[in-house]
């Protein structure tokens, strides 16, 4: 595949947004989108984990190809991503307590998220190289952060809105998420000419 890195980035962040087009990672999308501050932190943590898992997946894929066992892909991705994130978490806790306090509690939450595994499987299926994989992870992370920040802003505004009591709370969040997803469909023509 010889897609340019800009194409990959725009595609992963907007056109094929992980949350709003693929519906991956809905749990943190609905769970931690109540406040803008936590949403941005969660977005940063997801981007970070995606970057790590993307690099891991590239390495494992290469290893599994070497021993001719691609059917082990799924299970080894999960194992390696989970333990690597654990390792990085310990490393951060030791090296930078400030960063750990900002990011720490979010890291274990998203390690086993489907968006993380989805990213690893997609990049393998698309046959991306190392640089392409990293750009893909960054784009996906940026798209995830964008979606999270958008819905957090909307939810903060809606807290002051006078809405019928039947749709208050989770229902309203789901409605907003659906409309946001519809809006992102507008990007679907991008890049196809």
């Amino acid at each position: 595949m010889n897609e340019s890195i800009w194409y990959i980035f725009i595609s992963a962040s907007l056109v094929n947004n992980f949350v709003l087009a693929y519906f991956l990672g809905i749990c943190p999308f609905l769970g931690v989108s109540g406040k803008m501050a936590t949403a941005t932190r969660m977005g940063a943590a997801v981007t970070f984990v995606m970057l790590i898992s993307s690099m891991c997946a590239y390495g494992i894929h290469w290893g599994l190809e070497a021993i001719n066992a691609p059917f082990l892909q799924l299970i080894s991705y999960i194992v390696v991503i989970a333990s690597t994130v654990q390792l990085v978490e310990m490393f951060i806790k030791k090296m930078s307590p400030a960063l750990f306090r900002a990011l720490g509690i979010f890291l274990p939450l998203i390690t086993t998220n489907c968006a993380i595994l989805g990213l690893a499987l997609f990049q393998t299926a698309k046959g991306y190289g190392f640089v392409q994989s990293i750009v893909y992870a960054l784009g996906a992370g940026a798209g995830f952060t964008l979606a999270l920040v958008l819905i957090a802003g909307l939810r903060e505004k809606l807290d002051f809105a006078d809405v019928p009591w039947t749709v208050k709370g989770t229902v309203l969040t789901l409605l907003v998420a659906g409309i946001l997803s519809l809006v992102f469909m507008g990007f679907s023509g991008l890049g196809s000419q």
């Binding site: 599994l64 021993i67 082990l72 333990s83 654990q86 390792l87 310990m90 490393f91 806790k93 030791k94």
Partner: peptide
Amino acid sequence: ALGSLTILLAIMLVIANKKLYV
């Protein structure tokens, strides 16, 4: 493949737990 992978990761985490203990 999976056995060696998990054992490798486990060893790595055990070492990290000792080295990076706060």
